[in-house]
């Protein structure tokens, strides 16, 4: 009976739960789904992480390559994020070139990397004007159940913290780079940005960490990215119904609390990975 009601009247189905201050999956309005983190899941990558927020699963692999720095920024390396939403993860995605949502997510991740300065791109430079590192960050969604951006940012941050770059020396005689794979060092991560997504249901009810069903029914979405100092790196609201000042403040407060939780989780997993080695 309930299943039929959900299919026929999805909006009314969700409303009947929200009226009782809970959600169809048993959560409260401001409750996050269980977040699971696995670091170093891909042994062949330079850094990797797998994040699960409820059913949503995102895996991030980092590949470091040597390249020439750009002429405009000779003392800097670069980071290239790419979000992939394959048809595997949800029926809403079709095979072929990346759709609008995947492209928008890639650009969002790139903007967060730039805004938060989580890595100083100067650190990726090996020799000014000649050689630098390029970090290709491939984020792939394996299971899409809403809240893609939170999972992507978290997977990216954890994978970057796990990244070990080999030492590179430039041979003075031949001028060619020599890579010493045995000697690796960690990347310096300056900031810990964490994204927290919110949805506005029926123009007034604020819910966190939306599922895919909820995302398709809400009137507005909002993503707040905060770093460890409590500064905002991004307040991204692509449109939808308007949000009042008090609601926005409520979101920011929850995002700061979430940032602390996630940073604690990442540090815990990183240290457990280190002791295992």
């Amino acid at each position: 009976m309930a299943a039929g009601f959900k299919t026929a009247e999805p909006l009314e189905y969700h409303r009947s739960f929200l009226r009782e201050n809970c959600r169809p999956d048993g959560r409260e309005l401001s409750e996050f789904r269980t977040t699971t983190l696995n670091i170093g899941s891909i042994s062949t990558a330079d850094g990797s992480a797998l994040v699960k927020i409820g059913n949503t699963t995102v895996i991030c692999g980092i590949k470091a390559e040597l390249a020439n720095p750009t002429v405009e920024a000779p003392g800097k390396g670069y980071i290239v994020p790419n979000v992939d939403l394959p048809p595997l993860c949800s029926s809403r995605f079709r095979p072929g070139p990346p759709g609008e949502q995947a492209q928008a997510a890639s650009q969002f991740v790139a903007d967060v990397i730039e805004s938060s300065e989580l890595i100083q791109t100067e650190d990726l430079c090996i020799e000014r004007g000649k050689l630098c590192w390029v970090l290709y960050c491939d984020l792939m969604c394996l299971d899409y159940d809403g809240n893609l951006l939170d999972a992507c940012i978290m997977a990216l941050l954890s994978a970057l913290k796990n990244t070990q770059l080999p030492e590179v020396t430039i041979n003075t005689e031949t001028g060619s780079p020599e890579v010493n794979f045995k000697k690796r060092h960690e990347l310096r991560i300056h900031k810990h940005p964490v994204a927290t997504s919110f949805c506005i249901f029926d123009e007034s009810i604020l819910i966190v960490d939306p599922t895919s069903d909820e995302e398709s029914l809400v009137t507005a979405q909002l993503t707040v990215v905060t770093d460890d100092e409590g500064r905002l790196c991004s307040v991204y609201k692509p449109g939808g119904t308007s949000v009042s000042g008090e609601k926005l403040q409520q979101c920011i407060n929850q995002a700061t609390a979430r940032q602390r939780e996630i940073q604690k989780l990442i540090n815990k997993v990183i240290s457990s990975v280190k002791t295992a080695q």
């Binding site: 903007d111 730039e114 805004s115 938060s116 300065e117 909002l222 770093d227 409590g230 500064r231 905002l232 790196c233 991004s234 307040v235 991204y236 609201k237 692509p238 449109g239 939808g240 119904t241 308007s242 949000v243 009042s244 000042g245 926005l248 403040q249 920011i252």
Partner: peptide, 26 residues
């Protein structure tokens, strides 16, 4: 900003800033 309630319809940001800076800008 919408014309009826002068509330924020869309927000897109770049760079890092504090909460009070955000409110001032709004």
């Amino acid at each position: 900003i919408d014309s009826t309630e002068r509330k924020v319809l869309m927000s897109s940001t770049k760079g890092s800033f504090s909460v009070s800076e955000l409110q001032q800008c709004i």
